[in-house]
Computed example of a mutant assay.
Amino acid sequence: MERYIYRPKSDFALLNLNKILRSKVMKQLYKIKELRSFLILWGSQAVSSFGTAMTNFALIIWAYKQQGTVSSITLLSVCSYLPSILFCFLAGTLADRWNKKKIMLICDFIAALGTLTVFILYSTGSLRICHLYVINFTLSFMNAFQNPATYVAGITYYSKGAFYTSKRVASFL
C-alpha cells in the first residue's frame, strides 16, 4: 500500500503551508523563551525541594535506627512542620515586603548549611538526635519564608499570555 504524501498543486499552497507551520512553531518558541526566567526559577526550586525532602527522609530513617522509638520520629516530624505552620502568616507578610530573590537565596543557603552541618556531624560521628531537632526546626522556619517568596516571585516572571502555562508548571512544585 502506498503512503499518501501531501503534494500541493501549486507553489502558492506550499508557501502558505510553510507560513502556517512557521507561525505555529515560532509562537511555541516565543512562549518558551518568554517563560525562560520562570522555568529557571521553577527548576532550581524543584531541585531544592527534592533535596530537602530526601534529606528529611534519610534523617527520619537514621533517627529511627539510633533511637528505635516512634516518639523520636514524631518529635523530629513536629520540628520539621510546626514552624512552617506557626510562622507562615508572619513570614508571608514579611516576604511581600522584602526582596523575594534575597529571601530565596538566604533560605536556600541556610538549607545547604543545615545539610552540610548534618553531613559534618555524621562524618565525625558526633551527630545526635537533638542536633536534628534544632536543624529541622531552623529549616522549617526558613521554609515558612521561602514558600511565599517563591510563589510571589514566580508571578513576576511571566506575562499575561503565559500565566496559565506557568501556573500549570508551578503546580507540580
Results as ranks from 00 to 15, higher is better:
residue 123 S to T: 10
residue 125 G to H: 07
residue 55 T to L: 03
residue 76 L to E: 09
residue 55 T to K: 00
residue 20 I to S: 11
residue 8 P to H: 05
residue 132 L to C: 07
residue 104 M to Q: 00
residue 23 S to I: 03
residue 171 S to I: 05
residue 52 T to R: 01
residue 50 F to Y: 01
residue 131 H to R: 03
residue 8 P to G: 08
residue 29 L to R: 04
residue 52 T to K: 04
residue 30 Y to L: 08
residue 170 A to Y: 03
residue 29 L to M: 03
residue 110 I to R: 02
residue 104 M to D: 03
residue 2 E to G: 14
residue 157 Y to D: 09
residue 98 W to H: 01
residue 100 K to E: 12
residue 108 D to R: 13
residue 30 Y to W: 13
residue 86 L to G: 01
residue 4 Y to L: 14
residue 111 A to L: 12
residue 45 Q to N: 02
residue 164 Y to L: 15
residue 80 S to V: 02
residue 126 S to I: 12
residue 90 L to D: 12
residue 41 L to Y: 06
residue 108 D to W: 10
residue 118 V to D: 14
residue 144 A to M: 00
residue 24 K to Y: 08
residue 128 R to W: 14
residue 41 L to T: 04
residue 67 Q to P: 12
residue 135 I to T: 04
residue 154 G to P: 04
residue 132 L to K: 00
residue 112 A to F: 09
residue 129 I to K: 02
residue 122 Y to H: 06
residue 151 Y to I: 15
residue 48 S to W: 04
residue 43 G to V: 01
residue 42 W to P: 01
residue 117 T to D: 07
residue 65 K to L: 05
residue 126 S to H: 11
residue 39 L to V: 05
residue 154 G to E: 08
residue 136 N to A: 08
residue 49 S to E: 15
residue 73 I to F: 14
residue 168 R to D: 10
residue 116 L to Q: 07
residue 137 F to N: 01
residue 135 I to R: 07
residue 96 D to A: 00
residue 23 S to D: 03
residue 147 N to V: 07
residue 56 N to L: 08
residue 61 I to N: 13
residue 173 L to V: 06
residue 159 S to L: 13
residue 97 R to K: 01
residue 48 S to M: 06
residue 10 S to F: 10
residue 169 V to G: 08
residue 28 Q to D: 11
residue 91 A to I: 05
residue 106 I to G: 15
residue 33 K to V: 01
residue 37 S to C: 10
residue 21 L to I: 09
residue 37 S to Y: 04
residue 82 L to W: 00
residue 163 F to M: 07
residue 145 F to L: 06
residue 58 A to F: 07
residue 69 T to V: 13
residue 104 M to N: 10
